[in-house]
Amino acid sequence: MRTRFQQEMEELRDKLLRMGGLAELAVDRACQAYSERDLTRCQLVLENESLINIAERDIDERAFDILATQQPAAVDLRFILAVTKINSDLERVGDQAVNIAERVMDMIELPAADLPVDIPRMATAVGAMVRRALESFVDGKAELAQAVLEMDHVVDRMRDEAFIMLVRTMNERPQVTQQALDALLVARNLERVADHATNIAEDVIFWVLGADVRHHALTVAPQPARPERQEQ
């Protein structure tokens, strides 16, 4: 048993989970800020972005060290490759949260407008995708990750519907064009968060099953067995 190696892998996993928590919190805060027109939450999202960036660099460095010194193979090698890619996706989730927060800060300065789009509903769906993608990573569950992939279509449809409705609103009520445009961009940011959650789920499937399901290459067959957890 390679005790030091297993410890390093466990630390890497914990660090990624903490970063996942930060990214998830950033999206939640940005979406609440949208619903409640809350400047304070927007500022919190902006302030905490640097924590996510620091975590990203730290995780990359740890992964690099393990690759350089431990020569991982098989499930461990797939795990580290997955971690580095999930790390990058989580950092971008954080970026999207910042984009949403900045958009909300713009909106707060404008009069509130009643828009025919349910951003909170979309935010709930996207938040669930991020949460499940991270849960699939925690538990090494490919089937849960597969469920995330399927949710992406739902969010895509929500984004398409939001675009249609908001463009129509801009034509019919030009006085709320700016607000509609902000909402449209928030919808786009949320849809991108969903894309990153999808990427994370694909990476979990790669780690657990060794299967590359990117670009709809494959769907996941029923899972034969859970992979070795790192502490074993």
């Binding site: 991982p72 098989a74 499930v75």
Partner: peptide, 14 residues
């Protein structure tokens, strides 16, 4: 070394 078929192989190479 990427995805061995047998659990025992995976345990050994890791």
């Amino acid at each position: 070394f990427r995805k061995p078929s047998d659990k025992r192989t995976e345990d050994y190479v890791t």
